[in-house]
Design a protein around this nucleic acid. Structure first.
Length: 290
DNA sequence: CACCAGGCAAGCC
DNA sequence: GGCTTGCATGGT
């Protein structure tokens, strides 16, 4: 089956989609700015707000033109990648077979690097509902207000805007001890000491080394930024959930994170990032390893 | 009231 | 080098 894309009544329709489930994609832990209102998801990316819903293999993007689709959303939703092939390659043991079936509609979004960087700095030692709350406050306070289908939304603030803030001003978002990292990372980007866009074309090792220079960015945050915004799909972020599920499914007892990373690299190779997302979603939804 | 949440950095030995 | 501890905030 081939996916069809067309405009209808001022909306964009995707019909005959495969390996694409909006709920799984927005809920698998890779992004923090999508919320579900009834059966419609709404969010903001690349300065554009979007309301989108799904019924079976048909997805509707409200108020979106083919031009918007081509310039923003097609790449964002990673259209064109053969997830069926990825799942088949990963499903060579019973664990991945189950995880890829459970979250078979997950796609890895191509997010904005700066938003991704700040979001995962905020994620450190934090829980997902509160991460979302802090990011929402960040956007409402320091992003630009945009109007879409008669409703207001806020873009993610630029590095320039954030870098001009004081710690005290940033305090309204209640990020806690992470506020100084947010500010310092924004300054590094705004002053050109790191060029996030360039890292897409750079080697994985170089991109990783550059990101690790930033305050508040250690191995885990770094791997998330590489995977979710810099197209480094071999990245396998090892957080507390992944650590627990890997110990539960592939080891006998507790292991250090480096052992788990090495195992993932060996077993999943270039597909590490996809494996991580299937595992994360499956483990959290089914409370496996807890 | 402890303890924990998609870690990280600084301070120890 | 590895290992421990503090870090803001909010929810159980």
């Amino acid at each position: 089956m081939v996916m069809r894309v067309y405009e209808e009544n001022g909306s964009l329709i995707l019909s005959g989609t495969e390996d694409f489930d909006l709920g799984q994609t927005f809920d698998c832990g890779q992004c923090f700015r999508w919320t579900k209102c009834g059966d419609i998801w709404e969010g903001v990316a690349f300065g554009h707000a979007l309301r989108i819903c799904q019924s079976g293999d048909t997805i509707t993007l409200f108020g979106v033109t083919l031009t918007d689709w081509e310039s923003v959303w097609k790449k964002y939703f990673d259209i064109g990648r053969d997830y069926g092939k990825i799942k088949a390659a990963l499903a060579k043991d019973s664990v991945m077979k189950e995880a890829t079936q459970f979250g078979g509609g997950i796609r890895i979004l191509n997010q904005e690097p700066f938003e991704c960087l700040i979001s995962f700095i905020i994620s450190a030692s934090n829980n997902i509902p509160r991460i979302k709350k802090i990011i929402a406050a960040l956007c409402e306070n320091f992003g630009d207000k945009i109007t879409y289908l008669g409703k207001s939304y806020y873009t993610f603030p630029t590095a320039e805007r954030l870098s001009a803030l004081t710690l005290e001003e940033l305090g309204v978002i209640k990020a806690g001890f992470r506020d100084k990292y947010i500010l310092a990372a924004a300054k590094a980007v705004a002053e050109g000491r790191i060029d996030l866009e360039c890292l897409k074309a750079a080697s994985c090792d170089y991109a990783k080394a550059e990101l690790l220079k930033l305050p508040g960015v250690g191995n885990k945050v770094c791997e998330c930024v590489l995977l979710f915004s810099l197209e480094k799909y071999s990245s396998f972020p090892v957080d507390v959930w992944i650590k627990r599920i890997m110990e539960h499914c592939y080891f006998d007892g507790e292991q250090d994170k480096e052992t788990i990373s090495a195992f993932a690299r060996e077993r999943f190779g270039d597909l590490g990032g996809f494996a991580q997302q299937y595992l994360f979603f499956w483990a959290r939804e089914n409370k496996i390893g807890t």
